[in-house]
Amino acid sequence: MTAVAAGERPAGRRGARALVDLVFRARELSLVAALAVLVAVTTAASPNFLSAQGVKDIFLNTSILALLAVGQSVVVITRNIDLSVGSVVGLVAFTTGRLLADGGHGVLTALVFGVAIGAACGLVNGLLVSFCRVPALVVTLGTLYVVQGLGHYIAHGRQINAADLPPGLLSLGNEGVLGVPYLAIVTLAVMAATGYYLRSYPSGRDLYAVGSSPEAARLAGVPVRRRVLAAYLFSGVLAGLAGVMWLARFGTVVADPARGWELLVVSAVVVGGVAIVGGVGTVYGAVLGALLLTTIGSALVVLKVNAFWQQALTGALLLLAITVDRVLAVRVARLLRRRSVRYG
């Protein structure tokens, strides 16, 4: 091999990696463009859409979904899925509300209690998927119904009323700083910290390696089971936090208030560019996906469009995102093979 050829190899590999980064960065930019077009069209039809209250409502409605999307994206990156998050949100929201309604507890206690329940649910999912090697779809579908049933058993048809909750918790869910809701600040902080961790720490990059090829990651010395367990634990923690945020946001809560949200969360993640087959995507894209879906829902309400079309558009976006992921994956793989042949 000549000196020139030897020097070209790393350049080719760096170029291939830059190509992959560029493709998926463009995916996130396309979401921003879609959001801009959607907001512009809706504002032209209804100028009040971008009023201060309208923007605040969008941020509040997005915060919980985006927080769940951050946790779900970490799981999906490892080539797994967590369908139990909606049920965990409901269980945490009701049980935490029951705890606070009994009196003598503050916001900090609610946060610790809710996060602990979510962590326990995530730990169960992670142990069954990583160490017992039960398929993630089966495990989380099972825990979805188990947690859902547990929530209904505890509730016994009762509901939590906002009047029974401490004012500090309700302030957390409906107030903010300089017009930015506290819930949005919490979500943005979690997103930024998670994104930085995934990109900057070896254990974070291990999650991408696991999603790309679990067997290759294992041969490379990555503790695959521990990484998958950690991903589920993290998703459970954020689901617990989202449950407390749900309680703070709405105040009045019945058993299983977030029924069906697990599919909405998965849709936000996939629309945001996190490949359902694992190994690709960012939490920033997942949050943008959540913001896009929430804005579509708000726009349809403002435009007085039947709610059926929101579900239809969500499904169409999901199918489109999966199709785009597949097409991009095939094209990127083809380009990488060509570069490998050229520089190999």
Rank of each mutant, 00 (worst) to 15 (best):
S298D: 14
V237D: 07
L264D: 15
T323L: 12
L293R: 00
V254H: 12
P214A: 12
A275H: 13
L264E: 14
V280T: 14
G272L: 06
A231M: 03
G272Y: 07
G211S: 08
V266F: 14
L263S: 13
L207I: 15
Q310A: 10
G297Y: 12
L229H: 07
D256T: 04
T294S: 11
R225E: 15
V254L: 12
V280N: 11
W246K: 06
V305P: 00
L318K: 08
F234V: 05
L313T: 11
A248V: 02
V254T: 15
G273R: 02
A255R: 01
V222F: 14
V277M: 09
G236I: 02
L318A: 09
A275V: 08
T282V: 03
L263D: 06
A216I: 09
L303D: 00
W309A: 00
F308T: 12
A258H: 03
A217E: 04
A231F: 01
V277T: 14
V244N: 05
G236H: 02
G260P: 00
G243F: 07
V224W: 11
L247P: 10
G221Q: 11
Y208D: 00
V305G: 04
T314K: 10
V269S: 10
T295H: 06
A231Y: 00
V324C: 06
A255W: 05
S267G: 03
T323P: 04
K304L: 14
R205S: 04
S298M: 13
V224M: 13
R326L: 11
R249L: 08
V271W: 05
R225C: 08
V210K: 04
L263R: 05
G221M: 13
G236D: 06
A217D: 05
Y232S: 02
R218T: 08
A258V: 01
V265H: 12
R225G: 15
A286S: 13
V222T: 13
A286N: 10
V277K: 13
G260D: 03
G221D: 14
A242I: 09
G289H: 03
A242H: 11
A268C: 09
I276C: 01
A248G: 01
V210N: 08
A239P: 09
V274G: 02
V277G: 08
W261G: 02
L207Q: 15
R259N: 07
S213V: 03
G289A: 04
V266G: 06
G272F: 07
A230Q: 05
V265A: 13
V301P: 01
S298R: 15
R259G: 00
E262V: 09
P257A: 15
L247A: 08
K304M: 11
T314C: 02
V287P: 12
